[in-house]
Design a protein around this nucleic acid. Sequence first.
DNA 1: ACGCGTACTGCCCTTTAGTACAACTCCCTT
DNA 2: AAGGGAGTTGTACTAAAGGGCAGTACGCGT
Lengths: 199, 199
Amino acid sequence: MPTLLITSSPSLQQHLQAALDRELEVYDSLSALAEQPQRCAQGVVWVDADNQDEALLGRLCRGDFGHARVIVLSSTPSDRQAVQWLGAGAAGFLNAFSQPETLRQVSAVVAADGIWVGVGLMQQLCARFGQVARTDSPLLEQLTEREREVVGHLREGKSNKQIARDMDISERTVKAHLTAIFGKLGVPDRVQLLLKLSS
Amino acid sequence: MPTLLITSSPSLQQHLQAALDRELEVYDSLSALAEQPQRCAQGVVWVDADNQDEALLGRLCRGDFGHARVIVLSSTPSDRQAVQWLGAGAAGFLNAFSQPETLRQVSAVVAADGIWVGVGLMQQLCARFGQVARTDSPLLEQLTEREREVVGHLREGKSNKQIARDMDISERTVKAHLTAIFGKLGVPDRVQLLLKLSS
DNA sequence: ACGCGTACTGCCCTTTAGTACAACTCCCTT
DNA sequence: AAGGGAGTTGTACTAAAGGGCAGTACGCGT
């Protein structure tokens, strides 16, 4: 399993090589690597994001060039960048000049098919996710079983007619359920309901 | 730094003990541990979530019983559970009977104050974050200026009549813009458009 | 001058959404 | 037995959404 490094910075190359104590296959830019996709079909690729083509890096993370595990490095890391690359499918995001011990840790985690992310960011992400999950369930608790089913279909964007077909009841009954749902949740129509559920 | 394990399953105890090759302090249930909170004031606590009190586990993750690092195990893991516990403050979530190598990896990461999470879940979290943080979708690039304005109003859940008032044009023109928008984005109606934009 | 894209609007039409009012059947609790 | 919630459906209505057809107007490049 080869370990690749994409950077145009000699100092970063030296830093990473010293930390990992392993043979690195170094490429100057992603475009150079893109021409031989078989090199990154597997293994781990460390990418210095500072001077790389964002679109190309995004494709690499998404797996367009194989199933490589991508670790994105930045000398000026931010939460925005972290979300961008981890969301695209990167396996790690951290400061390019992190402590050697941290780099080794990241390397081990990623090699074991895990992903590496800073504690602060993780808390932010969970808070954001939890925010949605929290407002989601209590809202639907006041609905009956059948009404929740209707909401489920509604979230797929189905029409009343389609919901009626899928639930094997009349369209009139679907409307009855909807009227009850709108009343309980305090919304005027299906559009507002969807917005309330996804906010 | 003690390592605790909360489970009522002998096979899980054996599995983890063998993988970590370390002395484990085993408790049958969380309620047994809750009576002596000083035991989990620090260190790492592995908890088998399968047969535990959810409320109690939530409090443990949130730090009600000290600042222990909590790793939640499940023999039937799901993203929903992962979000639930990581969101509550757990340091890791994984299959109870993961490979010994993975378990050791998780142990190392958590001991180093990191968080362990699967790649798929990470992408979901980032997507959810982006949903809130992102203001403009690449989908909207193919729309004209005026059409993007209409979409903006649409995302507020406004009716055509209201949009017409706000943009100071006729309702018919709003419909004309909408027809163009639906065509370009390949959706049949406003509901599907909203779903597409928020996915 | 001509074509083209964008914006805007009218009339008229069909379909969909939503509600008011009125029933009926089950099932569960009192 | 009586009441009530949940689920179901009908008729009839209003309002909203969506689109076809037709026309006007403005700016921009050839």
